[in-house]
Design a protein around this nucleic acid. Structure first.
Lengths: 192, 192
DNA sequence: TATTTTTTGTACCTATAGTTCAAGAATTGG
DNA sequence: CCAATTCTTGAACTATAGGTACAAAAAATA
């Protein structure tokens, strides 16, 4: 009963995600959100409670969609290293092709808020955990297939790959061209 | 002639650097700066012109001091890999021991402002360039000394090490403990 | 149709951002 | 010691942040 919402909160969160992604948390104003979501301030606060709550929702959404995308990307057929290289390449290309150079929302959030915003930090940590796990699983698969030396520590390599992606997405925020990221990809694949 | 300044602008820039480092650019208010620098608003704007100009000065200062510190750190005596491991360890320890978990100002700035602030992006890029160069020089030294395989691309490894440091300092902003960073260090040294 | 629940837009509010400015204080040159 | 100059303090100013409070209106149920 009662009047139903005139807008789709899921769509609104998606749009909010884009705004936060482009402008950062502190850099996003209520007016920015009102404009981007196409709803009134009343609806905004009535539905989401606060800027911070909306940010958390957007960050959660981001984490889920990105983690799923990465896992899918790594799960494609083919030799392990090729899959890895393909995934890293695609990431770098997408980041550099983005006209706004948004990079990664989780990375940006970690840098902007750090532990000062513990709930955000926790969401970021979870995303890091998932990503690391996905890489580790890939490495273990490669080891079983004999493509990667079995005596190397898959967990450590998973951490290294996560760290590599984080670094690349950060650098993509300011990079002039693809060269440096290409070198990173070459070196990390070469090191396996 | 005229009344001399009652404060040392160099000291003021250092203090401003710390504030921006802790709170980010957008998160720093004029009041924060006035409080931290111990001068009036008038002096602040009279001396530095704007928040943004002061930020640029602080970021430049940071770049110079950090680049020098890293180059010195990598220049210590001993085997190449040991020096590298030592430098990475020290970085990780310092980042995690910092009660504010400030991470790296350049990394944070890249993430927060990206290319939206081109002058800041340029300062960050220069710092990345210098750091990469320092790592490359170290690798080349290691290759000459026969400690690192000569057939590997020193430039690419330099990029990888830069990228590794960037990733680590980002992750240090939100990390729970040292484990993940330790794994990254192990894996990257192991991969040389 | 009456009732109920929720939405929506507008108006409003307090605090602060980021900056400017006026009036006075300290210095040096003449 | 006066003038010129440069600094300092702190009030003042405009715009916006971030959020609340309404009153009107719309949709669902019975």
């Amino acid at each position: 009963m009662g009047r139903p919402k005139q807008f789709d909160p899921d769509v609104a969160v998606d749009r909010a995600m884009d705004v936060f992604w482009r402008k950062g948390y502190a850099g996003t104003t209520p007016q920015d959100l009102v404009d981007a979501l196409g709803i009134g301030k009343g609806s905004l606060y009535n539905t989401f409670g606060s800027k911070h709550a909306l940010f958390e929702a957007a960050l959660s959404r981001y984490r889920d969609s990105q983690a799923a995308a990465l896992i899918e990307l790594l799960g494609e057929p083919g030799p392990t290293k090729d899959r890895l290289r393909g995934a890293l390449r695609l990431l770098a290309e997408m980041d550099l092709a983005d006209p706004d150079r948004r990079g990664c929302l989780a990375v940006n959030t970690a840098a902007e808020l750090g532990r000062a915003d513990e709930s955000a930090a926790q969401l970021v940590r979870r995303m890091l955990d998932r990503t690391e796990d996905a890489f580790r699983a890939l490495i273990e698969e490669g080891q079983r297939a004999g493509e990667i030396a079995a005596d190397r520590d898959a967990h450590a390599i998973g951490s290294l790959l996560l760290n590599t992606v984080v670094g690349m997405r950060l650098i993509a925020r300011v990079a002039d061209g693809p060269e440096r990221l290409d070198r990173v990809i070459d070196a990390v694949i070469d090191s396996l």
